[in-house]
Amino acid sequence: MVKVGVLALQGDFREHIWRLKALNVDAFEVRKIDELDAVDGLIIPGGESTTIGKLIRRNGLTDLLRRYHKPIWGTCAGAILLAKDIEDSDQFKLGLMNITIRRNDYGRQIDSFSQDIELNINDQRTSFNAIFIRAPRITKLGESVKSLAECNGDAVMVIEKNRLATTFHPELTDMNTVHKFFVELIVKQQNH
């Protein structure tokens, strides 16, 4: 059985753990090096990207995460931290995915929105209610990056090898589709 870690420095890590438990997957809070070593894949949750970035550094996880080769998925703030480029910002980042991202690009909280989108995963199209909260916008995709879902023309779910980013929050819904997809990524990697 795979062990999935959720970075629990700040943000909505509890909701990710609930979704994983709903899939009967072993889920663990990760705050320290030994906890990170013990899991087969990691989710960086939604939260405040500047805060999570600082806490990654202060908790001594920077080097391990920048060299992370296991499957990793970032939602919203997590997606920002995974990006190689953050437009107009010199904040801390992990730079694990060839994407350019722009923070709060849909506006402030009063511009937060939810919308039904189509996920294109495992050669299937699935409807999903995507929740965007002070969301970032992915403005550029590198050649090796594939978009798995769009919303009004923007890529909102992208994958590069075993690295996944969503600018919306599947953990705030009661749908397990995206979590299941990520767990399958981990299983696939283990079987290799």
Binding site: A8, L9, Q10, G11, D12, F13, R14, E15, G46, G47, E48, T51, C76, A77, Q109, S112, F113, S114, I131, I133, R134, H169, L172
Partner: peptide, 12 residues
Amino acid sequence: LKTGLADMLKGG
């Protein structure tokens, strides 16, 4: 959306 932003502030 309203409770969601509060969720993002958790642990902070």
